[in-house]
Amino acid sequence: MDRTTIDLWVGIFVALGVAALLGLAMKVGNLTSSKIGPTYSVSAAFENVGSLKPNAPVKSAGVVVGRVDSIVFDAKKYEALVTIKIDKRYAFPKDTFANIYTAGLLGEQYVGLEAGGEDDALKNGDKISQTQDAIVLEKMISQFLFSKASESKSDNKDADTASKSADTKPTGAKSTELGDAPF
């Protein structure tokens, strides 16, 4: 085999490999999408962060404006202290509202920022005071079930008393189409 031909083929081989790696990095991986410029960090305390994880997106109006930097447990207040990094291009007012939302029904959780109306902007190291916790699905379901159960229980009670009163009712009592007369 000619040496130049071998060189050519090996060159093609390596170029293909590099192209495939670039393709994987750009088209398949998240190398292009996770780019945010210089940031400032802001913290927010939540009573429950659900399954929020570091590096989760921070969105405002659905647009990614930053990333969650760290989540630590505050042992004094029994709260989760979430530090988020926001792109320096975006300034948010001091009374911005921080929520934890879920993308889709079972999707990943992210921090949603809703801008307030104040003139002063959040600065590096500030703390967002207005927060709303993550919605825990089990809690909601159990609340719903409990309320349903208590509703049906009270329904049953009404039905019981109604039937009892029907049993004990004297035989000659009037009964109209709309039910027993109250007297």
């Binding site: 790696l21 991986g29 998240n30 999408s33």
Partner: peptide
């Protein structure tokens, strides 16, 4: 197809580990 892929494949944790 592509956007879900890009959202879930990490360059460092998946591609570099595979390498």
């Amino acid at each position: 197809f592509w956007s879900q892929m890009q959202a879930n494949v990490d360059f460092r944790l998946d591609i570099v580990n595979g390498l």
